[in-house]
């Protein structure tokens, strides 16, 4: 409103709204550059190999063993991660207790620590007296269980983050109602919260699986790289590269890309299916 004597008269008219195009185009260019980088890497890989190399890799006894071991260990790690991450995620989401901030930070350590350090720490842990006592019962270091443990150490932290977010999104009031209807805390969890968290559980499991598939650093240190014993797919890439067989290394890399994309598609389809209203 303009008053008498005002130097710069102001207008009540609606402002001229500029086009949204520059904003959207600049964002699309920045985002598109990254997508192009990823696609270019894959295209480069694909140009370096051929269906013949791919087939030859699949025919190799060692590589077939690595594929089987990778699928087995990743699946066991995913199950174990969700099993352990569910209580941690739930307790962190629902309760306040002394030291919660510290616990939260501890749970992030496997995410921020260099993978090699995790492998080294596991190796040292199982050389301590309690570690050796465990190994006298179940051989772990440089054996298959060490692969699962190395994958689990990292993947579980991601599963915890996913499940905590899942439980945060489930209103606590539903549990309150269940409590008044005669449930104990455990019953309320299993009857009300757990069924509702199943998509989050699936997302956490697939994330843990995909993360485990690409795990290499801790496995190299803690499990070694012995063919037909502790060789998983990332180890295969490393071993084939080290002997100069780049075509086979690339073929195995692409195999992992296909597996990872398949798993990530499952996450997208099942994990985000019921979150409408996110797009404009």
């Amino acid at each position: 409103m303009t008053g008498p004597g005002s130097n710069a008269p102001e207008s009540d008219a609606p402002p001229r709204v500029r086009s949204d195009a520059p904003f959207l185009i600049s964002f699309a260019i920045l985002g598109g550059a990254y997508v192009l980088l990823v696609l270019a890497m894959l295209a480069a890989d694909a140009s370096f190999t051929s269906p013949r190399h791919f087939w030859a890799a699949l025919q190799s006894r060692e590589i077939r063993y690595a594929i089987r071991l990778s699928l087995l260990t990743c699946s066991l790690t995913a199950i174990l991660s969700v099993w352990v991450a569910t209580p941690i995620g739930y307790l962190l989401s629902r309760y306040r207790f002394p030291g919660k901030a510290l616990l939260d930070a501890i749970l992030d350590i496997p995410i921020v620590l260099p993978p090699l350090v995790i492998g080294l720490s596991l190796l040292i842990l199982f050389q301590t007296r309690p570690g050796r006592a465990v190994q006298s019962l179940i051989p772990i270091t440089y054996e298959v269980p060490s692969i699962i443990l190395a994958q689990f150490s990292v993947a579980c932290a991601f599963a915890v983050r996913t499940l905590r977010a899942t439980f945060d999104q489930i209103p606590v009031r539903q549990e309150h109602v269940a409590l008044t209807l005669g449930c104990g805390r455990g019953q309320a969890f299993w009857m009300v919260v757990f069924p509702e968290a199943r998509r989050g559980l699936l997302t956490a499991a697939t994330l843990a699986w995909a993360r485990s598939l690409g795990e290499f650093g801790p496995i190299l240190i803690f499990s070694g790289a012995t063919r037909m014993r502790t060789e998983v797919l990332p180890t295969t890439v490393f071993l084939e590269l080290s002997v100069g067989n780049i075509e086979a290394a690339v073929a195995v890399s692409l195999l992992m890309v296909v597996a990872a994309v398949a798993v990530l598609m499952v996450i997208r389809i099942f994990g985000l299916e019921r979150t409408p209203g996110r797009s404009l």
């Binding site: 209103p171 009031r173 539903q174 309150h176 109602v177 269940a178 008044t180 209807l181 009300v192 069924p195 509702e196 199943r198």
Partner: peptide, 11 residues
């Protein structure tokens, strides 16, 4: 107990 939003169980 009937809370404000009903708090029905979605599943």
């Amino acid at each position: 107990y009937v809370p404000q939003d009903g708090a029905l169980f979605p599943s």
